[in-house]
């Protein structure tokens, strides 16, 4: 397929939609930013799209818990449609607040068997950072799986985080083992040398340093770091120190992989 179409979902309080659109366009996709009310009115508008993105922000103010009210809206109005979207082999990406929505609807890590969305079968969640406050900082990310279409399995990347509720926790040790052993961990927080560590290497206290999760198909991924904020080298925090500046746009790998996957598989 030559024309890759992506949809970036907006909602009250979503605020990273424009830069996410820009990143997808740089990667070669045609992008539409759409308010979720429009999709609920007319779900057929998703038919021509192959990539759906839940961007970052504070949907509904993150009241109750981050992403919860939007997750509730998605489950009550778009459950079947979301399920079908992934079942059709299409891609879903959630960034920051989008990840919080995806984990609270169960889209990732997708452990509830039926593959259906649910607000009650959640086994993994994102909760308050250990440091107790919002943090904006850059983190190194090491891939944790080779079967997620968004991830280059051999490439460590450097991206910013900006969140207050980004700590991954599982309900039990068994769940943690299961997501680790079945390749659900898309990225881990590490230091520049690729080693796990305490704060600030792991900026929120996530179990097993998990920064991103994928579902069992590898086509849906949620991540706390913001790839759309590192699509050009002048966004890199060391750019004025770099001799050779081209190529320092690690966030592009995520978007380029998604677009290339659609080109090859549709």
């Amino acid at each position: 397929m030559d024309t890759v179409k992506a949809i970036v979902l907006r909602a009250a309080g979503i605020n990273c939609d424009l830069e996410t659109q820009h990143a997808l366009e740089l990667a070669g996709a045609e992008v539409e930013r759409v308010h979720i009310n429009r999709v609920i009115d007319n779900p057929a508008m998703l038919d021509g799209c192959q990539i759906m993105v839940f961007p970052g922000g504070f949907s509904y103010g993150d009241d109750v818990a981050a992403g919860k009210v939007l997750a509730n809206q998605v489950v009550h109005h778009l459950s079947d449609i979301m399920h079908q979207f992934v079942a059709d082999g299409k891609l879903v990406l959630g960034i920051c607040n989008g990840f919080q929505v995806m984990i609270k609807t169960g889209i990732v890590p997708g452990l509830n068997g039926s593959g259906k969305l649910s607000l009650t079968d959640q086994k993994v969640t994102l909760t308050d950072n250990d440091c107790g406050k919002f943090e904006d900082r850059w983190v190194h990310l090491k891939p944790g799986t080779d079967r997620c279409v968004f991830v280059n399995p051999d490439q460590q990347i450097y991206l910013p985080i900006a969140h207050g509720e980004g700590k991954i926790v599982c309900d039990t040790e068994q769940t943690l083992e299961r997501i680790v052993n079945s390749g659900h961990v898309a990225f881990r927080y590490v230091d520049a040398d690729g080693n796990e560590g305490d704060f600030p290497v792991n900026p929120n206290g996530s179990q097993d340093s998990i920064a991103a999760l994928t579902d069992s198909t590898g086509r849906a991924m949620g991540m706390m770091p913001h790839p759309e904020r590192c699509v050009r080298w002048t966004q890199h925090p060391h750019w004025t120190r770099l001799k050779d500046r081209e190529g320092f746009a690690d966030g592009m790998t995520i978007f380029t992989n998604a677009v290339n996957y659609v080109k090859e598989n549709f």
Binding site: N15, A23, F134, Q235
Partner: peptide, 23 residues
């Protein structure tokens, strides 16, 4: 203070409030 503010949203930061070798 600075880290509690999102200074990267909108994807336009060029000179951030904290930079240098250790940011």
């Amino acid at each position: 203070v600075i880290r509690q503010y999102d200074h990267e949203v909108q994807g336009g930061s060029v000179v951030k409030p904290l930079m240098g070798t250790d940011n």
